[in-house]
Design a protein around this nucleic acid. Structure first.
Lengths: 220, 220
DNA sequence: TCTATAAACTGAATACAGTCATAAATGAAG
DNA sequence: CTTCATTTATGACTGTATTCAGTTTATAGA
């Protein structure tokens, strides 16, 4: 029914493979252009907000034609994900890297989620739209694919759960990855409420702690 | 910073109060027009999909001016919520009303969530956009406010939890409403994955059952 | 080097959501 | 009935995301 797509999106060639067989000028131009686009978009989104930034402004700041932008991102929303995906990935990695293994599992989880929350608190206006977009992630291979981010979060949480179980012989037997999903679902839905302006930071954190405790079976 | 809103949205006067002090022609016209808008939008969204329906088409089908549409909904997305909110509310109420109290809590929860899932399975294209919008609900009093729907779901789940506890003296002591939030978070995030095309119906249900079991402490 | 093919780029043109100055309808007051 | 103020309706207009037919640039082969 829908008309066939006419405009092809460029291949997403971050890390063109385990071995680099000489990039070639075309590839280098593409990467450099992508970097300019993402840089320009980041600055403009931060300075003016998402709705107040036009794709024309981004194209001008990146010194490319208006149509070229849409070869690198299918929509303005995709561009938003593209721009902040790496920061979110770094934030998540940093959150797991700074976990204190002497703390309780609950405290460890709160450390991870608080760190990720703080990232979004920097710019609630951006976070609101960004998290709405992330609700329905793009397919793997899509330019704005976030599967790596989700993977880092889920496996990171699962690792914390597994490590905590070694110290507790009476722990639950559920697969750690499922527990991780359950934990993250509670964080994410609460975060949506937080950036939607329906709870204060402290309310969010207090409630999150209780929700996580229900899942890991620790009534603290 | 942002320019002040110029266009006022009409008061949302569903149920103008416990007592009806005679509607008046103005009020009747407004309600009738809203009904025409919602009816026209529902049919067009169903027939052609959200993106393929224009606000002009909706206005024509409802026999109103293009600008009038935006007195009843602030945006096309609001219109989508406005259109399907009542159906979702009815579905949720029906789901809770048909719970079999002889079943285990887990089976009762699965009945509720399966019923709500089936509603969205009818039109995955609409569900995808609708659930994305619902991720960040509008403020109470907004024309497309869904607080009543959320309230029905949360309190319904909490009631099931409370009822199940009467039969189990060793149950968890957490407030039932928090448990309900935890349960719903798992349903909602899984549903987003389902309508996002990242799991089959059966995969979603199997995983949901396990996630719910973790929360209510029933390893079944 | 020259040529052919494919990939990448471009910006004028398009389509559409949302606005706003103006007009019509309503109800209240006399 | 006749003002007059307030609410509601209207559609021409505006701004901007996205498209696409045509152009340029890179690469490979001869």
């Amino acid at each position: 029914m829908t008309g066939q797509r006419k405009v092809q999106i460029l291949e997403n060639t971050l890390t063109p493979g385990p071995d680099q067989p000489r990039p070639g000028r075309r590839e280098r131009n593409k990467q450099e252009k992508l970097a300019r686009i993402v840089g320009a978009a980041r600055q403009l989104f931060r300075e003016r907000g998402f709705a107040e930034t036009t794709t024309l402004q981004i194209a001008e700041a990146a010194d490319i034609g208006t149509g070229t932008l849409f070869l690198y991102a299918r929509s303005k929303e995709d561009l938003l994900v593209l721009v902040f995906r790496d920061e979110m990935l770094q934030t998540a990695r940093a959150a797991f890297a700074t976990v204190n293994s002497d703390e309780s599992l609950l405290d460890q989880l709160m450390h991870v989620f608080t760190t990720m929350l703080d990232y979004h608190e920097q710019d609630p206006g951006i976070a609101r739209i960004l998290l709405r977009e992330l609700a329905i992630p793009n397919a793997v291979g899509h330019p704005a694919d976030i599967s790596e981010l989700l993977n880092v979060i889920y496996s990171g949480l699962a690792d914390l759960v597994i490590a905590a179980r070694r110290a507790d012989p009476y722990s639950q037997p559920e697969p750690a990855l499922l527990v991780a999903e359950n934990l993250f679902a509670n964080y994410y839905l609460g975060l949506l409420g937080r950036v939607g302006g329906r709870s204060s930071r402290q309310q969010f954190l207090d409630r999150l702690r209780k929700l996580l405790a229900i899942t890991i079976g620790d009534a603290g």
